[in-house]
Design a protein around this nucleic acid. Structure first.
Lengths: 153, 153
DNA sequence: CCTCCCTGATTGACACGTCAACGATATGAC
DNA sequence: GTCATATCGTTGACGTGTCAATCAGGGAGG
């Protein structure tokens, strides 16, 4: 074998392309539904979900970034857009003057609560209902395997 | 049952989140490698691949858009960026004065040829090698099921 | 106290994607 | 030939994501 790392076969490549294109289309479809039903982007939803689960609907910006797995600059940009729309507010942090606290506004809370059922329904319709129970389980295992492999690289 | 469309269970939702987050991370990882190894984005690669497979390395803009499944405006913006970098050229179309032909430049061809092996290797390492043969097959079936379901909705 | 360094968060520049509007040309009905 | 309509491609506005730079405030060691 002379130490070669082989390239993917034609079939493997086809699976890869199908997989990527389909997951992208799925994500787009979900995002479009969420946007259409509720006026929120998936990013908005992610942020609002984390805030609504937090004590007092408020979190340190950094903690929020960790919880949702975003880079800080991404979060900062996104919070700027959400603040302009009144979904969240930023306050100074009492215990660390560098810090900022992100606070869920009543409007943000309303928007989130109005969005959750339609969003979950869409997840069911577009993802869960598309797969057999065995396929759903396999999807979970595939995700785990990919993630574990990614973690090593 | 009273006609209710149930929401996803906790387990189904967990699979969904794992699946989305992992595929997103995978896509990001691949894109980062391609960018680092070759200076191309995945969009660049897609366009260059289609052009390099076309007769004479040239395609009508609309045909190119259809082949790679992009909206025309997306393609137009992307071609503008690629043209600035000398990867492609736009020429007027002889048979239809509205049209434009996209032409692969020598630089674009070189960039693509230099990119293909590293990119395929990355696909193998990050995707194919992460999965057992059974999981790979399941991934293909899952993609097919999702796509077919999406097509109906 | 005063460096030096680390961390929290923001900013600016830029790539990328979508949507809606637009200008120009083709095309078919008449 | 003329006009309505459809198609081709571009553009502008804006949301989104990454990277590198920046600024301000902690905190440990002298």
């Amino acid at each position: 074998m002379a130490g070669t790392r082989k390239l993917p076969t034609r079939d493997e490549l086809r699976v890869w392309r199908d997989f990527v294109e389909t997951t992208e289309a799925l994500r787009g479809s979900l995002a479009g539904r969420l946007q259409g039903d509720t006026g929120l982007s998936t990013g908005d939803y992610t942020v609002l979900l984390a805030l609504s689960e937090a004590d007092g609907g408020r979190l340190r910006s950094s903690d929020l970034a960790v919880r949702i797995g975003w880079e800080r600059s991404r979060l900062s940009h996104h919070l700027g857009r959400m603040e302009r729309r009144g979904l969240i507010r930023r306050e100074e942090c009492a215990t660390d003057s560098r810090g900022a606290e992100v606070v869920l506004t009543p409007e943000g809370n309303d928007a989130f609560r109005a969005a959750t059922v339609p969003h979950l329904r869409a997840v069911r319709e577009l993802f869960v209902d598309a797969l057999t129970p065995a396929q759903l389980a396999a999807a979970g295992e595939i995700a785990a395997a990919l993630r574990e492999h990614l973690g090593r690289a």
